[in-house]
Write a protein that binds this DNA or RNA. Structure first.
Length: 563
RNA sequence: CGGGGCGUGGCGCAGCCUGGUAGCGCGCGGCCUUUGGGUGGCCGAGGUCCCCGGUUCGAAUCCGGGCGCCCCGACCA
């Protein structure tokens, strides 16, 4: 219900010079957001409305699964963060109050909510319990980027589940997952639920909700029936052709050839016929050798998970001292634990000889060295996914995540309950986050065209953009005014462009702002007794008789399910 | 945190190398014009040239230091 002439909706012809992402450019141009500092954004009236609409959907879907809304402070005493060990996180804003007491600005609210639950939940009868809030989060990001896609302050819906045991957590998790599916569908996003890294925090499972778009910071591996974050994705590799001559063991003179490409082109073999040996130092243990097929890349996260410990690449001095010359490292004769990636399958390979300027041909896993087999390579486009589909890799933005926390927070913070037998047990938790700003930005990324934003109806700032081409005082204007009042009466959400500017500017702005349905009231149409209604997404134009315009417009909107 | 780039009216930029009047387009205000895709004309307002220090008769320009912002990478419970 808005007259554009009286609305703070400053549109720009040009995007800011330093903007790269489509959503960044368009959100600034369409007057949705303005920047205050690095990673700090103000939502203007037209930008705040879609956020509020997303929040409305979040509230409905959370409440529908019995998740109760509350509100927790952003400013918090540091104590609980010390207890959970998260005080050490670099992204955590730390400050002191006037008495010098250490405080933090919360980046999420596990500490706070677990603190409360620890004090007020005592019996198995109080469980399960699900709570959520929509609150500002603060993160001292190393590099804010792409408008609101990665900012230092943002609002997040985060929900927490509290259960008696793992089975209960599994039920809560499924409830949340179902709600998340409905939320992203209702927001009109193209999205995938992918397996994600549970990290070193333990936890028994996690998924991310990914919206594919060019500005995405993550990569997802997709195939029919398969979707995973590339950090954890697993697939069968494309085969490599191994010539029969490889079977014959022989020392190969490879002077100065320390890289896979150099060796393979020198020998006239595909890179996949080589074994790449990478010495690593595992925390709490010593040197180990990781073997990867020559044409593959190591996936740090998968390796970390396979090891169950952190690691780093070994330094040259240690490698030279304990194994052999850098560039010619191989498994044969190396007196080290060996982890062999599963993609190295086949009889014989070329590998480093642990002697300078020398590689070995005919290296056969199992015969020439023993190993533990692991899956630690990064999947690639063209690989075969579990289920048989072909992997494609797409950039995507993470719009939500769900995480089985287990007792990661309840144990240190003493959130326990008494079970039926009177025994004290830790509460089993889950956490579930969604960023409304990322949903809005991802929607713009996915749907925008060369003229501007294309909102899905469900989160559009206004459903209708009514344009009066006539200026104040002209007879055609009265028709538009009347139509505006009629639409308002019908409870449609309308942005009414009643400015005294030229038609080009109005029509251009309407496309930039991107409301689902535009109704133009102008001399040309009125001469035939119609107004023109144009669907933003398809460009389809409908000529509506003036006296039926309101009813017909609402019908057109109702037929737009946003997808 | 490593690498690169940029800070000049609201936005986009030129001027800097070679020191001397701060300029252009858009936008903004007024008048006229125009009226179905940012119309045209005339007049006008608006700038601590990011900050501090230095060199100089004189600094947007040269030198030193600092701050801010953007991009790539690392990082991202």
């Amino acid at each position: 219900m808005t007259r554009l002439s009286q609305t703070f909706l400053p549109t720009l012809k040009d995007p800011p010079a330093d903007a790269e992402a489509i959503s960044h450019k368009l959100m600034v141009r369409a007057g949705l957001i303005r920047q205050l500092g690095a990673g700090l954004w103000t939502y203007m009236p037209a930008g705040w409305r879609p956020i509020r609409r997303v929040e409305g959907i979040l509230r409905e879907e959370m409440e529908a699964i019995g998740c109760q809304e509350m509100l927790m402070p952003v400013l918090q005493p540091a104590e609980a963060w010390r207890t959970t060990g998260r005080y050490a996180i670099e992204e955590l804003f730390k400050l002191e109050d006037r008495r010098g007491a250490p405080m933090v600005l919360a980046m999420t609210h596990e500490e706070c909510i677990t603190y409360h639950v620890a004090r007020d939940i005592r019996s198995y009868r109080d469980l399960p319990l699900m709570l959520f809030h929509i609150q500002t989060k603060e993160r001292d990001e190393a590099r804010p980027r792409a408008g609101v896609l990665r900012s230092r302050e943002f609002t997040m819906k985060d929900a927490y589940s509290f259960d008696r045991d793992e089975e209960g957590l599994a039920r809560s998790y499924e409830l949340q997952a179902g709600a998340y599916d409905r939320i992203f569908d209702r927001c009109g996003l193209r999205w995938y639920r992918v397996e994600s890294d549970v990290g070193m925090m333990g936890g028994s499972g996690a998924h991310e909700y990914m919206a594919p778009c060019a500005a995405g910071e993550n990569e997802v591996a997709l195939a029919p029936g398969y979707a995973a974050n590339i950090e954890v994705a697993s697939a069968d590799p494309q085969p490599v052709e191994l010539p029969a001559e490889l079977d014959a063991p022989e020392d190969l003179h490879t002077p100065g050839l320390a890289k896979v490409d150099e060796v393979s082109s020198h020998l006239g073999l595909p890179p996949g016929a080589l074994i790449k040996a990478m010495p690593i130092v595992v925390d709490g243990e010593g040197l180990q050798l990781v073997l990867i097929r020559g044409d593959h890349t190591l996936n740090d996260i998968k390796l970390r998970n396979a090891l169950g410990a952190d690691f780093r690449l070994a330094e040259a001095e240690q490698i030279e001292a304990e194994i052999g010359p850098v560039g010619y490292i191989g498994p044969v004769g190396a007196d080290l634990p060996i982890l062999k990636d599963a993609a190295i399958s086949g009889n014989s390979f070329v590998a480093g000889a642990n002697r300078v300027d020398t590689h070995l041909r005919g290296v056969r896993p199992g015969r020439d060295f023993s190993f533990e087999e692991v899956d630690v390579r990064t999947v690639e486009a063209g690989d075969t996914a579990p289920g048989g589909g072909t992997i494609e890799i797409e950039p995507a933005i993470e719009v939500g995540n769900i995480f089985k926390l287990g007792t990661r927070y309840s144990e240190p913070l003493g959130a326990t309950y008494l079970d039926e037998q009177g025994a004290e047990r830790p509460i089993v938790m889950g956490s579930y986050g969604i960023g409304p700003a990322r949903i809005v930005a991802a929607s713009i990324e996915q749907r925008a065209d060369q003229h501007g934003i294309v909102w899905p109806r469900q989160i559009a700032p206004w459903e209708l953009h009514l344009v009066s081409l006539a200026k104040a005082g002209e007879p055609e204007r009265e028709v538009a005014d009347h139509l505006y009042e009629e639409l308002r009466g019908a409870a449609a959400s309308v942005l009414y462009d009643d400015r005294d500017v030229g038609p080009g500017e109005k029509l251009t702005d309407a496309e930039l702002i991107g409301c689902p349905l535009r109704i133009v009231v102008g001399r040309r149409g009125l001469a035939e007794g119609v107004v023109e209604a144009t669907e933003r997404a398809s460009g389809e134009e409908h000529r509506l008789p003036v006296e039926e315009a309101t009813r017909r417009a609402l019908e057109l909107l109702a037929g737009d399910d946003g997808s």
